[in-house]
Design a protein around this nucleic acid. Sequence first.
DNA 1: CCGTCTTTACAAACTCTTTATGGAACCTTT
DNA 2: AAAGGTTCCATAAAGAGTTTGTAAAGACGG
Lengths: 235, 235
Amino acid sequence: MNERARILVVDDEPQLTRVLRTGLKSRGYDVRAAADGLSGFETFNDWHPDLVITDLAMPNVDGLELCRRLRAVSQVPIIVLSAKGEEKTKVEALDLGADDFVTKPFGIDELLARVRASLRRASASAINSPAQTTLDSGDFHVDLESREITVSGNSVHLTPKEFDLLVYFIKHSGKVLTHRTLLAAIWGGNYVEQNEYLRVFVGTLRKKIEPDSTSPRYILTEPWIGYRFDPGPAE
Amino acid sequence: MNERARILVVDDEPQLTRVLRTGLKSRGYDVRAAADGLSGFETFNDWHPDLVITDLAMPNVDGLELCRRLRAVSQVPIIVLSAKGEEKTKVEALDLGADDFVTKPFGIDELLARVRASLRRASASAINSPAQTTLDSGDFHVDLESREITVSGNSVHLTPKEFDLLVYFIKHSGKVLTHRTLLAAIWGGNYVEQNEYLRVFVGTLRKKIEPDSTSPRYILTEPWIGYRFDPGPAE
DNA sequence: CCGTCTTTACAAACTCTTTATGGAACCTTT
DNA sequence: AAAGGTTCCATAAAGAGTTTGTAAAGACGG
């Protein structure tokens, strides 16, 4: 936090690029822009930004391919911009390692919120790196050794799969997690199509951890895409 | 665990100190407070508490320096209180040997959970010290030399394997122990698949130490994972 | 021979999987 | 925009498959 965070915007629409550049700069970020995936990737290598915002539909190297190339060399947070209805492409991007998405048209405030969240997440995960036996995120406290979980101080008993799923959620708080990603992480690569498993387990988890499981506060649904975990009041 | 655990609170905010003192005392802890790092260190040397909770920002000797001085003379568990956004300091504190941290503002329940976890960890590792000839945990008293065990004052006759298993449970109270872990510890690495051994011995142990072996109070089952030992009343 | 450990067997308990149904979100057409 | 159709989501509950609890018989060693 000593220096201004650097953000790379990759988009082929000059108008949108200008809006983003202005909005981000006014919030104190250091911004550079590129008009296609190829020059975006080059700028990334030269400049090493702290976060990348990229459109999906672009000439030369498109957003998906850019995600792939970035992930091959970096864990930089990626926020994807996509038009409404491009769910399938969005899911592909997220599966390739994008952190979050914003659907066009969007308000600059919404984007700024996502940017803040992604940057905070990135710096937080850097802090928690030393081999930890305990996990903390918002209202949740997890002891990985004793496999005990407390939510706002109340301890909760979870079955093994429920425990694994919740730990995965907590470890990836705020990030949009696709069905495929979650299934691969908990059940293994052979089960990436079994969305029913997820539905059932998310259901039982919600009943155990949500104050009101009919309007979830922690495990949020991202329709057609997956789930997002919000750990509650940030530190 | 026979006596009340002693907790030293080091903080320069009288308001917060009062809340902590009240909350901790109501849970049966013996509490003393100090208003800065210097007097905190002195109190530690006089009183030898079982756990230290310290703020980071303080007059005289600050939290980091207090951690350093404590670690120079003791392995006492340290929980650090830090304000939101002091990530860098938190990391320093953990590097200096702090056990856990809690970010302000926090709920008293969360802090209590951390306190319990830290004390449990500490007592477990203290028990593992080589010179120990006697073990005390909740309702259990073990003489490792004569291999005698009493539960709530009643002496119990155990076979060698039963004795080893129960001692292992007591030494790792509260933690979930997988079948594999237990088998490796008692029978050796070549028997990690013999879950039947464990089933039988847990059964006989329960019949000998549980008041009602049909609803175990000490040796608890964690289905699909293993067992957890709860030594009974912690105070 | 006796106490202890190993092995076997089966019923009970638990988790995970699978299915079914009603409702919600989204897309298409008008 | 609004209606209809389609796909997806939430939930309950039945079913399958494991694991666990318990008793008891066989094996081992002092």
